[in-house]
Design a protein around this nucleic acid. Structure first.
Lengths: 250, 250
DNA sequence: GAGATGTTTCGGCCGCGGCCGAAGCGTTGC
DNA sequence: GCAACGCTTCGGCCGCGGCCGAAACATCTC
């Protein structure tokens, strides 16, 4: 009979308007520094700081210090699920909650993360690249900066993954020009927030997304970070990289 | 940008310890009067009344007046899902949340509702009885008292379902003695809370559960309302009533 | 080092909201 | 009818917690 106390404490954390704004701002898995969140929530830095420390103490947020900034993000998919479940209960417009439900699903399916692919599609591509031997490595260690996605790419360290000779040839054949120096590491990875697995980022990740959009294998949604896989794209990715995509269309 | 206000309002409703106790007390779909809830939560009647009216206004609870009592229950499965999702976030013991998860699943699968069967098993049985012509009728109208399960069986009105001649014969052959007067209607139904479909209650519902336990086709869990279907039970129910039970074992 | 920027800690103000007891209203039962 | 019971409404008390500004702390830049 102590579970109720925990439950209400967690719910009370979500139940403050300012904290709700914080959680929703981080709802898609981004990591944002305290100052940005203060601005977004419309409260003083001191206030946001207290809220953030409460949310971290309550296990809803994780904090990743980086330089003089501290980046906050949702502690995991379970937090987002809880937010979705609560949003279902909000009266508001039932139509909107339905549309938002499909939008959330689309976001989980395939989205852009800064400048590269994320979601189930991003994870599936990364898995295919490894299986086909286009990329190798991955030391299994936890690289904290990877969780921040490309946001901090310039400052990042070795990702643990390397492009293979076969990979260089295949990607070149795919229309991606690998020659010349690049301002940032060619191969990096992020821990995909919804899938909890790696997806490709770095220079190659960005070039790949750009190329897929140019070929019309992917299309950006009008608003937001969702991308849609076209029929050409589904067939093409399977032929080019052996990607197995179940119900990935649309 | 008004969704956050709704979300935080709902979360704030859950985020009070007393209200959490109310919600958890109703967590399995029961309907309880205000006085019982006041007792359970340990607050004065006036206090519980305010909480209950807030919860109803917030769409988390439904109220069903009956006589001089007012019965409260969760507004729907979505509320229970949200509570489960929040409970997942409660730090506590991660082991416990896993066990509770399987317990919640078992509860959804098959449970006793007062003195008869509910959950997926109860709904599947009801469907089989209708399909086999053991019971007929069901006028499709909403009978509010049905939602209260057998708690109010004595005071209930006509359920809309009738036992057929074939049904009388089959149930008699199954070892249920239908002869003689019964203190309450033989056939009644409840709106199953997790499945949102009808399951059998009334005198027959109680007699059936009793018989299934006696035959060791069902076993009660040590604690709580969960019942487990034995292997004999799964095969027996399929043979006797043509019940299709997919992954119902254990 | 000095200054700029980002973040946290502290102290104090203030309002929201939970709590109770008393009184009011509706239903049931004799 | 009157009494008992269940629940709600009202008024008032009180404490928790969100809010801010000021100051301290940490980190990067020059």
């Amino acid at each position: 009979m102590e579970g109720d106390a925990d439950l209400s404490r967690v719910a009370a954390l979500v139940g403050d308007p300012t904290r709700t704004r914080i959680l929703l701002a981080l709802g898609d898995g981004r990591a944002l520094p305290a100052g940005v969140l203060a601005n977004e929530a419309g409260v003083a830095p001191s206030t946001i700081s207290q809220h953030l420390s409460n949310l971290v103490a309550g296990g809803l947020l994780r904090v990743e210090p980086y330089g003089r900034n501290r980046y906050f993000r949702l502690a995991g998919p379970a937090v987002a699920y809880a937010l979705e479940a609560l949003a279902q209960l909000a009266p508001a417009v039932p139509v909107r909650s339905l549309r938002d439900g499909t939008r959330a699903e689309a976001l989980r399916r395939a989205r852009s993360c800064y400048d590269h692919l994320a979601g189930r599609l991003g994870v599936a591509l990364m898995a295919a690249f490894l299986k086909q031997g286009l990329i190798e490595g991955g030391d299994g260690l936890f690289h904290p900066e990877a969780a921040l996605c490309d946001r901090l790419a310039v400052a990042g360290r070795d990702s643990g993954y390397r492009l293979t000779a076969k990979g260089a040839s295949v990607f070149t054949g795919f229309g991606i020009d690998l020659a010349g120096p690049h301002a940032r590491p060619v191969v990096r990875y992020c821990v995909d927030w919804t899938e909890q697995q790696h997806h490709l980022s770095g220079w190659l990740g960005a070039a790949l997304l750009e190329r897929l959009l140019a070929m019309d294998w992917l299309r950006r949604a009008q608003r937001g970070r969702v991308v849609h896989l076209t029929d050409d794209g589904r067939h093409g990715l399977q032929r080019a990289f052996g990607v197995e995509l179940q119900v990935m269309s649309q």
